[in-house]
Amino acid sequence: MKELDPLLHSQLRLAVMSILMSLESAEFTYLRDKTESTAGNLSVQLDKLEKAGYITVTKSFVGRKPCTSCKVTAIGRVAFGEYVETIKTYLGY
């Protein structure tokens, strides 16, 4: 049986990818609220996903406030699709 992608097979990273898959883009604060994670932990996990090429992280300013926006990449979409297919075989769907 095919091995699950270790980068996605983690609670917080999988939650972030699941949210981003159904969105065009999402701000850091939105992801933090929806995943009920801490800012520090979320930053670390976003960094790992970005380094793997699964997401892009864009930093900008809205007025005077810093704004971090995340978006899933084509590589991320393929990886997530493969992960879901593998999960299905594990669970016998």
């Binding site: 699950l4 097979h9 983690s10 609670q11 917080l12 990273r13 999988l14 939650a15 699941s18 949210i19 159904s22 929806k34 995943t35 009920e36 994670s37 932990n41 670390v44 996990q45 879901v84 999960i87 594990y90 669970l91």
Partner: peptide, 18 residues
């Protein structure tokens, strides 16, 4: 939400919930 390993069933639940 902590960064921890999960079972296959849990991962499917997370995807659906999110």
């Amino acid at each position: 939400m902590e960064e921890k390993k999960i079972s296959e069933a849990e991962s499917l639940a997370i995807i659906t919930q999110m």
